[in-house]
Write a protein that binds this DNA or RNA. Structure first.
Lengths: 190, 190
DNA sequence: TGTACATCAGTGAACGCGCGTTCACTGATGTAC
DNA sequence: TGTACATCAGTGAACGCGCGTTCACTGATGTAC
């Protein structure tokens, strides 16, 4: 049954990728290792050939989940014209699609309150991802001084995360849309 | 062993109150019924004399947790002078004390991502609590038209929730303080 | 290049544990006479 | 007002279940000669 080193590395990458999706979809606590391994097309017994513990997987999965998030935002910024790169970022983050696709969206919006209770390693990964987002957004505030731009970006990213999370909690679809819409408008009028 | 009706009602209230604290402290999933009952000074077997299921307790505990939150904000608003009632609210919400005392703080900031995956009953309770906060904050924007005040309050409450949650995730204490501080300043300069 | 052997990715059963839930039991409370 | 009995809040043991983790085993891979 042994697989080549190449295959094994590929398997490990697949487990992390599936974990990143499953954790965001159902929550870290509610996702069992069996769920993750099944999603990767494996049985749960093999897990410990790749990781020392669930916590180790959590930290790696969070890192894997943050990576494309930053890339997406950079891509959105590049796609928008020079003037409305902020609009492109804000629009791509505060849209119903992002709200409705937990497993592909922002890690922090999907797992915020669980991350706050996670171990240092995982929180450090989330912190780094957050700072990366802040940095990318800060670069778009071209007319502000660097320090002011960073402060503004800190507030903007925080508000966006809060808005997406809140839009997922609320039971009234109109209210959910209003949260995204008003936050978006507010950040663009800034 | 039977207790009087009065005592039984008091016990039930105590269970809900303890659950509201334990859920916020450790998360809903991570808090067992045994934990809650022990916190209330009881053994876990008696739980089903008071509730049909854990989900029922979750919904009631969330309601119990939102009630004082709205009251606190109203109190903060009343305490502040007419002009800076917004400042009083924002300051009381975005302070290190609130960040560091999960079990007594805002339900949504403490359990946001778990609430997003909870059943309709619990999400409805959270939605009602959120709208109550928005309403109280909207009243403080006295110079704005009602509709604009509500929109502004929606954004402000969402941003505050996001800021407190984020300040709990981040591993760097200075960054954590900066998130609260910058969000506060931003909401007051509004 | 071919053969013998050690490695180790993946399987599937099993471990102890704590979960939500159920249940037989206790004994003070509340009610009916 | 006093007595007999039904009620039911709370206890503590037990239920089945799924969790994270461990382990004996399999058999293709990679290595040493």
């Amino acid at each position: 049954m042994k697989k080549s080193k190449l295959e094994a590395a590929e398997t490990r990458r697949r487990i992390v990728k599936m974990a990143a999706a499953e954790f965001r979809r159902n929550g870290i606590h509610a996702t069992g290792l069996s769920d993750v391994m099944a999603a990767a097309g494996l049985t749960h017994g093999g897990f410990y050939r790749h990781f020392d513990s669930k916590d180790e997987l959590v930290a790696e999965a969070c890192a894997a989940a943050m990576e494309p998030a930053a890339e997406n935002i950079v891509a959105a910024a590049c796609y928008g014209a020079a003037n409305d790169s902020v609009e492109a970022i804000v629009t791509s983050y505060l849209c119903p699609d992002h709200r409705d696709n937990l497993s592909k969206g922002c890690l922090i919006a999907a797992l915020g309150s669980e991350l706050a209770r996670s171990d240092d390693k995982t929180r450090a990964v989330a912190t780094a991802g957050f700072l990366k987002l802040v940095e990318v957004v800060a670069k778009q505030y071209r007319r502000a001084k660097p320090k002011a731009a960073k402060a503004r970006a800190l507030v903007a990213v925080t508000a966006m995360i809060g808005a997406v999370m809140m839009s997922r909690i609320v039971t009234d679809p109109e209210l959910s849309a209003a949260i995204l819409q008003h936050t978006k408008k507010h950040l663009l009028d800034l």
